[in-house]
Amino acid sequence: MTNGAITGEFIKELLSKGAREFGRGFNDYRRVVLSTGVIPHAEGSAECFIGNTRVLVGVKLAVSEPLPDKPHEGDIRTAAEMLPLASPDYEPGPPSPESIELARVVDRGIRAAGMIDTKSLFIEEGKVWSVFIDIYVLNFDGNLFDACTLAGVAALLDCRMPAYKDGKEDHENTVGKLKVTGMVTSSTFAKIGDKIVLDPDATEEKNAMDARVTVATDENLIRAMQKGGRGAFTAEEMDRIIQLTFEKSKDLRKIVKEAVGE
């Protein structure tokens, strides 16, 4: 609804008193629920709720020709759709800059953490596997980055390998699981005035947020970062954010492990 101004002021006032809507602390996630295997037709799939944000990720594998400069490597192709049913603000049509950014940030975290060894996707001369990661946003209530990274990672861990026969994939028969190593998770922070909060919801993102930053890490290293919005962060703020991200990643990794049954 076209009422950014007063809601934004309200949120800022609340934050200045050290409070946040629904009794949340500045560094609290909303409830995170993650489940895998929700779309049996896909090779891998996962659904993630963070509060009322709901995303679905499906992974499909296909045999394709390698890129000319990397003849012995497969590839990962990530796409995100902000479905128009997910928010009154989303419109049908070609991918928006926001959905492209979302897909690329999720993709970068997964790639940089080396979760998939593209060399292991080589089949034979002229044939490699392509891993398609498709992100579907089903309900928008802020912080898509963390929800999509969680669902994307869980869907990869859920992913089975189709059989390979006569130059083509056979989706009805699978041969073990996709080889995945390590695990990346991300935490997204919003800067509102001089305050910084974890896991912004839609009200905070749309009406009050000056800047946003997503930090993706594995157990020990930062693997991807993305800052968005007009506002800015100081180096000290980023340092604190990175520290918090590593702390939060412990909980998130646990959630992923439980969802994939490890």
């Binding site: 309200f10 609340l14 409070a19 946040r20 809507e21 629904f22 009794g23």
Partner: peptide, 9 residues
């Protein structure tokens, strides 16, 4: 005024 956050909830 008051506890608007609680009222929202």
């Amino acid at each position: 005024g008051g506890d608007v956050a609680l009222a929202t909830e």
